[in-house]
């Protein structure tokens, strides 16, 4: 499970008191601790007491998603949303299941609903942006990215992961200068994370600073985690070193990629 997905799943729920609520709360605490077996047991208890308890159904969906059972997750969310169509987090999670299953029409519709129900919730805003971008609506996507960043800044919870989609889209749009500020912010927020360093290097290369880009990318290569692969970083380094007038260093990275290919990596 990606860090982004885990983060999305661990957003705390606000649910009203109910007969099965205590069992649900126990299940939720266990889920956050990643004790999924115990969480499932507590959740079964909660849903046995109250089959239409929306937070319990939503948590059941999250557990199903953690087990890669998106079909089960959807069924639980459909039940939850039939009980309470205003359940913002259930709408968001439904959108997430659709997004991860490449069902963009459903993702868009659910993320829009989640965003409408709680406009100050940054994750729904961010994912609405991602779905919009996937369906070609880049201008509205960028607006959503900006809004998600603004919401997290206002709440004092700005995360590097929230900035990254905006940086990538700005680069696609050919606006490296606009991406630069966000790229610098990601570095401040997560200096030891690979993705922010890689995107920063991309921005620098696009800005015509190949030497600085190479330095940033070499650093990124030493960092772990994230979604940027070694090949992606090596490829940037090949171009950055070439543009810096150091073809020998570029050749080393090209040779590394070829060795990885030969090794089946």
């Amino acid at each position: 499970m990606t860090a982004a997905l885990w983060f999305a799943l661990t957003v705390l729920l606000a649910a009203p008191e109910s007969p099965g609520y205590v069992a649900y709360q126990r299940a939720n605490a266990l889920f956050v601790k990643q004790d999924f077996t115990a969480a499932q047991k507590a959740l079964d208890e909660a849903l046995g007491l109250e089959p239409k308890l929306v937070p319990a159904l939503t948590l059941n969906a999250k557990l199903a998603m953690a087990n890669n059972r998106f079909d089960v997750a959807r069924r639980n969310l459909e039940t939850a949303l039939a009980v309470d169509p205003q359940a913002q987090y259930a709408q968001f999670l439904y959108g997430l299941t659709a997004y991860l299953a490449n069902d963009m029409p459903a993702a868009l519709s659910r993320f829009r609903a989640a965003h409408r129900l709680k406009k100050d919730e940054p994750k729904a805003t961010l994912y609405l942006g991602l779905a919009l971008e996937s369906t070609g609506n880049t201008s509205e996507a960028l607006e959503m990215y900006r809004e998600a960043i603004r919401l997290e800044e206002a709440a004092g919870t700005l995360q590097a992961d929230t900035l990254l989609p905006g940086i990538r889209l700005q680069l696609v749009l050919g606006r490296a200068d606009a991406a630069e500020q966000w790229a610098r912010q990601t570095l401040q927020l997560a200096p030891e994370d690979r993705d922010p360093r890689f995107e920063y290097a991309r921005v620098l290369l696009a800005l015509g600073k190949p030497g600085e880009a190479a330095a940033a990318a070499e650093k990124a290569l030493t960092l772990r985690g994230g979604i940027a692969t070694d090949v992606q970083i090596h490829y940037l380094l090949i171009r950055a070193w070439r543009e810096s007038g150091q073809p020998d260093r570029a050749a080393l990275h090209a040779a590394t990629v070829r060795a990885m290919e030969a090794g089946g990596k």
């Binding site: 990538r168 680069l171 992606q232």
Partner: peptide
């Protein structure tokens, strides 16, 4: 392809 810059997309994808 790698050295010529045509092997992959700009982001290495």
């Amino acid at each position: 392809g790698l050295e010529s810059g045509v092997a992959l997309r700009d982001d290495g994808y």
